[in-house]
């Protein structure tokens, strides 16, 4: 039999075979297979015990109560590992919280800066004439069928209104900006190159009484217009709309300083 198994040598069954069985083989020579009933009973009892042990151990393992079965050394190691992990996670929490706070602060301040910048852009847009505006102001209508009003009168009107604190003006649907210019003559007045049609309608946003008074000063706009024989009408209003826009100009040479 051992010769039969000799060719299976690489599996190495022989060296780990039950030595005691091997010995008993020689002693009892295979004659005593089951022994007495007592021994058979002991065998069955042992097998039952083995099954019992297997079932118990499997139940214990499946119950997940593995910590209770572990040695103190292992438990200490596990505890150490858990504590280290807890420390790591705690420091991570702190780092993330500081990051969160930083981002919150940054977000709030950048939001404020954005709102401020938007407000400034709107104000500058009103001044530059790139944004429509409304508010209290006056409306001036010059009926001039004889075309006797000179461009200089309109220039005076614009400058007087500006002096009186007008914040936005438009004449016949053309926004007045810092580089607006009147050209032409009384037969054809040009504002920024665009013909001004009669009757001339001037809209200005500002304090209405102040603007009206600026028009009505002796020798002022109203007087000049009336001298030429045209009719002029100044109306104060709580809400006038200046909705003509000037194109946005990007400065070609000037750059912000600082």
């Amino acid at each position: 039999m051992s010769d039969d198994r000799g060719d299976d040598g690489p599996d190495g069954d022989r060296p780990v075979e039950h030595g005691s069985h091997r010995r008993s083989d020689e002693q009892t020579d295979g004659g005593n297979h089951l022994g007495g009933p007592l021994v058979a009973g002991v065998i069955l009892l042992l097998c039952a015990l083995l099954g019992f042990g297997i079932a118990t151990q499997v139940r214990r393992t499946a119950a997940g109560d593995s910590l209770a079965a572990m040695r103190p050394d292992d438990l200490v190691q596990i505890l150490d590992g858990l504590q280290q992990r807890e420390d790591d996670l705690n420091s991570e929490v702190v780092a993330l919280q500081s990051t969160l706070a930083r981002l919150r602060v940054g977000g709030a301040s950048s939001g404020q800066a954005l709102a401020e910048a938007q407000r400034q852009a709107e104000q500058l847009g009103i001044l530059a004439g790139t944004v429509a505006a409304h508010g209290p102001g006056i409306r001036i209508t010059i009926a001039d069928p004889a075309k006797s009003v000179e461009p200089e009168v309109l220039l005076d009107a614009v400058q007087e209104l500006r002096n009186a604190g007008a914040e936005a003006q438009q004449i016949d649907g053309i926004r007045i900006g810092m580089d607006s210019a009147f050209t032409g003559d009384r037969s054809q007045i040009l504002l920024d190159g665009t013909p001004v049609t009669r009757p001339i309608l001037i809209v200005a946003i500002g304090d209405p009484p102040t603007l009206a008074a600026a028009m009505a000063i002796p020798g002022g706009v109203v007087d000049s217009v009336k001298r030429t024989g045209a009719r002029i009408e100044v109306t104060q209003s709580n809400t006038v709309v200046v909705d003509a826009l000037r194109p946005v100009r990007t400065p070609q040479y000037a750059r912000p300083t600082g």
């Binding site: 039999m1 075979e17 039950h18 005691s20 069985h21 091997r22 010995r23 008993s24 083989d25 002693q27 009892t28 295979g30 005593n32 297979h33 089951l34 022994g35 021994v39 058979a40 002991v42 065998i43 042992l46």
Partner: peptide
């Protein structure tokens, strides 16, 4: 294994 190889001994089994 011993039983299959017909060298099973009950006493040896119990003791082992």
């Amino acid at each position: 294994r011993a039983w299959l190889e017909k060298i099973f001994d009950a006493k040896v089994f119990v003791v082992s």
